[in-house]
Amino acid sequence: MNLTLAILLEAACTFAIWSYLYKENPVYRLFEYVFIGISVGHILVMSISSINGSAIVPLLAGNVLYIIPIILGFTLYFYFSRSFYYLYRIPMALLVGTGVGLGIRGAAHSTIINQTIANISLFKLGMDWLSLLKGLAIVVGSVSVLYYFIFTYYVEQKGVIKNAMRLPRYFIMLTFGALLANVVMVRTSYLSGRLIFLWTTDAIYTIPIAIAIFSIGILYDKGFLHIKKK
């Protein structure tokens, strides 16, 4: 048995968060605040390191233009000022303009154009029936779902079109069903990671201790362990 501080800490963190499944409690709350503190500290460390590498180092090497993004970066902190709040919008404008420009480029080329070309080139001569069915499912699904989102928001559909709008809803339900299955796989993967740590390392020795502590906690919560006052 080699219960190092690292293993004990990791096991304590795991059980403390799982204690929320019974009820919110002070131990869970404490570890929640610890997590927020470390996360914020960590992201600050990484950002400062990134600023040092990308801006300070070239500035000190003689590239004076890098003073501009550094000044813009500090201007962001006028967010906290009441009188000069509007200065915060100037570096934000740089971020927003860059983001929008890059976003429009990517959306137009990769998503709209390339995906439409992929839809058209789904069908080839001599393809097997399974690929043909899949291709039909993709084309019918993508066109009907796109029509549903773009044309049913502003205009109320009537008659045959209204009934036909059931088809994209069915495709959306099938999509969400597949997404649900994948979300189940993802979240149980995270849980599996914790269980692999608990069962396959020396942390296995903390399991009976945790069960004992949980049991005492539950009994105390239900009132079985209170000392009666005379």
């Binding site: 959306a107 069915l133 495709f171 597949a178």
Partner: peptide, 23 residues
Amino acid sequence: FFVTGFAAGGNRGIQIGAAIASI
């Protein structure tokens, strides 16, 4: 087939719609 047929079609429609909206 559910993933690479139906869900792929639904996802493609959602993605193209979202791309148009984002533009």
